[in-house]
Design a protein around this nucleic acid. Sequence first.
DNA 1: CCATCTTTGTGCACGCGTTCACAAAGACAT
DNA 2: ATGTCTTTGTGAACGCGTGCACAAAGATGG
Lengths: 251, 251
Amino acid sequence: MATGRTHRPATRSRGIPEATVARLPLYLRALTALSERSVPTVSSEELAAAAGVNSAKLRKDFSYLGSYGTRGVGYDVEYLVYQISRELGLTQDWPVVIVGIGNLGAALANYGGFASRGFRVAALIDADPAMAGKPVAGIPVQHTDELEKIIDDNGVSIGVIATPAGAAQQVCDRLVAAGVTSILNFAPTVLSVPDGVDVRKVDLSIELQILAFHEQRKAGEEAAGEPGAVPLAPKESGKGPDGDVPAVMPA
Amino acid sequence: MATGRTHRPATRSRGIPEATVARLPLYLRALTALSERSVPTVSSEELAAAAGVNSAKLRKDFSYLGSYGTRGVGYDVEYLVYQISRELGLTQDWPVVIVGIGNLGAALANYGGFASRGFRVAALIDADPAMAGKPVAGIPVQHTDELEKIIDDNGVSIGVIATPAGAAQQVCDRLVAAGVTSILNFAPTVLSVPDGVDVRKVDLSIELQILAFHEQRKAGEEAAGEPGAVPLAPKESGKGPDGDVPAVMPA
DNA sequence: CCATCTTTGTGCACGCGTTCACAAAGACAT
DNA sequence: ATGTCTTTGTGAACGCGTGCACAAAGATGG
């Protein structure tokens, strides 16, 4: 079992709180939409509504970046787009590799949201020799054997894992060994990585389970789960719907 | 523009903190794996390691569910699997519809993690008439016109939106009107929904942007973004890598 | 039945994130 | 210039989540 660092102290990078960083892409998206409509300025109130957050939170978030607004007027859309892009590092080009070109991998390869924000799919990699050479989203799939070379040649530092759970850790290890320092993991596994490597995990099943939890709550305790299963079953009570919290987390 | 409730007070459902709910699926996965290996009991330490969390946190999380452990021994795997499943509402069957059968929708339809946890893909829906009848993952795609009927006939309360951004709000409105009260949104849009409807958002592009932020940080301020773009540029300083926080959020 | 050893369950303190509420800053009209 | 009006930027309070550290609970062996 490959044991390694997994937790993260959630150290604040620079002065920008992590929670803020996680919202910046949200603001950026809203701002980009405004920019395309040639809207010159927005108030924190308007932008907050568009991004689906509280305006006070938005202002505080922006305050971490600097004083980019004009009192009595609002924020200059173009300027803010640039500032946030720069802060997020989107003014540069990020070559990305996607490993595991199954349904999900193919979907990711075809996903338009990447290219539009400075991400470039440098290569698609799959362990199935039959896939090799076959173009997906206009990019020929390469075999896993080439992984290290691809990473090296393209200076890839961000890898996306869309393999089955069983292969994920192994792929992860190879990516890291080859120099990748950021991983977006779609496989339902906890990845162990050395310090200095960031892992973000997206788990579809988990998201649904969280929804199910709230759904069950909303349905009330009418039929409170089918009985006659396991004995013992202390505690049971209360109610009250709603509530939400993320399920995508570090490491 | 369909305006509606978007925020959520993050009210604590019952006594279980949202952060805990978000981790339960994680524990469940680890426990299921142990169960398959016929491991009878686990200590909080072992399970925490398997789930990638702190053992104290895990114990506190479980304490919200009840006192299901035995001091000096640990937790009974089977029993805990059942308790968590029940708490998450996975002991019942959740019919789910997926709207938008593009690459991503197809990937979701094929995703095995659903069926294994009480979720059943009741129908696949797409706006393209050419898709109608075509089987994806063994399920024939149905046209959007049938949406309301499908929701109603199958008693669907959870919907997955995998359409392009432009269609998302419209689809969302129809799902909600038809009776869906939980939505998993993959479209890069902020959805407006009435009170009582839960929305969880998964945004691939956002995840990558957050990684890019940290990556940029790790790369140091060597080449601190290409200059010569926008004027003005107050503040600039510090450094320090690492840090992580989720980007999947309510509404 | 008692001693010892393991592991849970939790009281407590700390820090991050959110929100309120308002003073400061600037635009704009007169 | 001066006053009014709008909107930002932030100080401060609060609440949630995390992690420490330990007492209580039970298993196990003699």
